[in-house]
Amino acid sequence: MHRHELTDEQWKQLEPLIPARRGPRTKKGDRQFVNAVLWRVKTGAPWRDLPERYGPWKTVYNRFGRWATRGVWEGLFKALQLQVDDVGSLLDATIIRAHQDASGAKGGADAMLWAVLEEAFLPRSTPCAPPRANRSK
């Protein structure tokens, strides 16, 4: 079993929630498809970088899109949803995005940017006079 794949216990819980197939059976099966989607979501890699053990990336991508359109993913998430305790909950915010104005990007505070640039480019020493050229007579 690979790092981002479902354990046997997790699959036993998820398998009854998988909708019946429309059309021919897949070569890799439903579990490999779900594992492929989990790998893609956890790694953040492009679909084209999907490992070969999951089958053709385009097939997995197309099936993922069909499930999303039919609302299968939403049904799975709702079925697996845990009851949240009002007394104690934990949220993990490993990524916090700021608005572009917060970083001084276009539309941000230009005055602050110019003040920083002026400070950075202040002369650090007094320039010496250039040497006089020898004048020939």
Rank of each mutant, 00 (worst) to 15 (best):
A133V: 14
G108C: 05
T43P: 05
D86Q: 14
F77Y: 08
W57E: 03
Q100I: 12
C128Y: 00
A93I: 10
L113T: 14
M112K: 11
P127C: 03
T69N: 04
W114R: 14
G44Q: 05
D30L: 06
S89T: 15
T43S: 12
A111Q: 15
G104C: 11
G107F: 05
M112W: 08
F64K: 00
R124I: 11
V60C: 08
V87K: 14
A109P: 09
L38P: 03
D49R: 01
R48F: 02
A93S: 13
R124N: 06
T69H: 03
A133Q: 15
R124P: 00
A109N: 15
G44E: 03
D92S: 11
V72L: 08
W73C: 02
F64C: 04
S103G: 12
E74S: 08
R132T: 04
F33E: 03
P127Y: 08
G108H: 03
A115T: 12
A93L: 15
W73H: 04
A98T: 12
W67M: 11
G88K: 07
P51M: 01
W47I: 09
A109V: 13
S89Y: 13
L90T: 13
P130C: 03
R53I: 13
F64G: 00
K42V: 03
S125F: 10
R53S: 10
W57M: 00
A109W: 11
W67C: 06
T43G: 07
R124Q: 14
D49Q: 06
W47N: 09
I95R: 13
A115K: 14
F121V: 14
L50R: 03
W73E: 03
L113D: 07
V87Q: 14
V34M: 11
G65Q: 15
A68V: 02
N62L: 08
V37S: 02
L80D: 01
R124T: 12
G71W: 02
L113G: 05
L91S: 09
P130K: 10
P46H: 07
S125Y: 10
D85T: 07
K106E: 09
Y61F: 13
N134R: 13
L82S: 14
E119Q: 14
G104I: 12
A98D: 06
S89L: 14
T126F: 10
M112C: 04
A129V: 03
P51G: 01
A120N: 00
W57S: 05
D101W: 08
